[in-house]
Amino acid sequence: MESITLPATVRELGQMAEARGMKASELLEELAAQLPTPQPPAGYTLAEGCSDYYVGTETKTDAWVVAAGWDADTATHQIEAWTVKDQNLTPAQALEMAAALTAAAKAGHA
């Protein structure tokens, strides 16, 4: 793995840039391009209208939706769950939703 030397202070950034004959903003841009970026899990796609949130498997019924998500800013899995039209769930629907939530949580925890 390649190591990247990053400045710890603004002063150090200026000194590093000066030593390379660059502006501090140019060096900062160069360093940012070298940093590793978190990659979404396999099968996740960028959510429509988002630049940092990915969606995975979505399970739907006529009463509820459970969707797996992944936040690139924090590199964490998330689970979205909601009922359709804010309706109450029957006990059977709640059990189905609980099973879908459990499956999504296990997939994100692996």
Score class of each variant (00 low, 15 high):
43 G>S: 08
19 A>N: 04
41 P>C: 12
19 A>T: 05
26 E>L: 08
17 A>T: 00
53 Y>T: 12
51 S>A: 15
47 A>W: 07
21 G>A: 13
56 G>F: 05
33 A>I: 10
21 G>E: 13
32 A>K: 15
52 D>M: 11
33 A>K: 15
36 P>I: 05
37 T>N: 09
41 P>D: 08
49 G>K: 12
31 L>K: 08
17 A>M: 00
49 G>E: 12
35 L>R: 04
43 G>R: 11
60 K>H: 04
55 V>H: 03
20 R>S: 07
51 S>F: 14
60 K>S: 03
21 G>D: 13
24 A>G: 04
17 A>W: 04
37 T>W: 05
30 E>L: 07
44 Y>F: 15
19 A>L: 08
58 E>S: 03
42 A>G: 10
39 Q>N: 08
32 A>M: 13
22 M>L: 15
38 P>W: 06
42 A>H: 10
20 R>N: 07
44 Y>L: 11
28 L>S: 14
19 A>H: 06
37 T>Q: 12
47 A>P: 04
42 A>T: 11
59 T>F: 00
57 T>H: 06
34 Q>T: 03
50 C>G: 00
20 R>V: 01
47 A>Y: 07
30 E>G: 02
20 R>W: 03
41 P>W: 11
36 P>W: 06
27 L>D: 01
23 K>S: 05
32 A>W: 12
47 A>R: 12
47 A>G: 09
30 E>W: 01
25 S>W: 05
48 E>F: 14
53 Y>K: 03
31 L>A: 06
29 E>Y: 15
33 A>G: 13
40 P>V: 04
21 G>N: 14
56 G>Q: 00
34 Q>I: 00
55 V>C: 07
59 T>M: 00
48 E>S: 14
51 S>V: 14
18 E>F: 09
43 G>I: 08
27 L>K: 02
50 C>M: 03
39 Q>T: 11
43 G>Q: 11
56 G>P: 00
58 E>W: 01
55 V>Q: 03
18 E>Q: 13
35 L>G: 02
30 E>C: 04
45 T>S: 13
42 A>K: 13
40 P>M: 07
24 A>K: 02
44 Y>C: 11
41 P>S: 09
41 P>Y: 10
24 A>Q: 04
33 A>R: 14
25 S>T: 11
25 S>H: 08
55 V>G: 02
47 A>L: 11
34 Q>F: 00
17 A>L: 02
42 A>D: 13
44 Y>V: 10
24 A>V: 05
36 P>M: 06
27 L>S: 00
21 G>K: 07
25 S>C: 08
59 T>K: 00
21 G>S: 12
24 A>T: 06
58 E>L: 03
52 D>E: 11
28 L>T: 03
48 E>L: 14
59 T>P: 02
51 S>D: 15
25 S>N: 09
54 Y>E: 00
33 A>H: 13
25 S>Y: 07
57 T>R: 03
60 K>P: 04
28 L>Y: 06
51 S>W: 15
58 E>A: 01
18 E>Y: 09
